[in-house]
Amino acid sequence: MRLNMKAILIIPAYNEEENILNVFEKIQEYNKNSERKVDYVVINDSSKDNTLKILQENNINHINLIQNLGIGGAVQTGYKYAYQNGYDIAIQFDGDGQHDINYVEKICKPIINKEADMCIGTRYLDKNESEFQSTFMRRLGKNIISFFIKVFSKKNITDPTSGFRAVNREIIKIFSENYPTEYPEPESTMELLLNDYKIMEVPVSMNERKGGKSSINLWKSIDYMIKVSLALIIDSINLKSRKSRNVKNKN
């Protein structure tokens, strides 16, 4: 691994008082044991619980959003921070302890070797490696989104909703300028694919949530599915027309 490349974990956190300290300790432990250190920044999305207090008391590097923006807006703040501070790699990492810090090396490798512009940590590539098998609804949702991405970009992405992703400097710049805030993961994946950036997937395993509760129920997921599909369709039409216009201008 090239040692001069600076990497940062972007950790969005909303009401994660039970998990955030744990995540922070794991990062420190990881930094002690591995040759290459990763920086981190926690984005506190105006949590209503004691997340901010924990962040301040333990001297954890954090950005405190003055209003609640939702996951997309929080993550984009992280990309802006990464861009302003000159990082070469940014890794999206959940604040709820779902993601395993030991996969950071693996997820960064394709970026460092310049094999890909974005690398997604996927739960479904290798069933044996993943102990985390999510519910039927989640899998169905993922398949529908994958299907849409396949239709519009003709590329296979197994887990377009995974929030465990690493990107290079160029993508950091793109995301810091323009990041879809409503359905961030699938929409940004689609956007990159349509702009001919290379996306790779590596299998990772994820932990169950240790505390707090996930905010997913049946109606919400159906609503989510419909809106994401619509967003993907609109995005792809927009991008395609923009592209053809660019081609015309060049000619």
Binding site: I63, L65, I66, Q67, L69, Q76, T77, K80, Q84
Partner: peptide
Amino acid sequence: ISLVQEISLLKN
């Protein structure tokens, strides 16, 4: 959204 982000980054 971008206002909140910029202000929060500046505060940090």
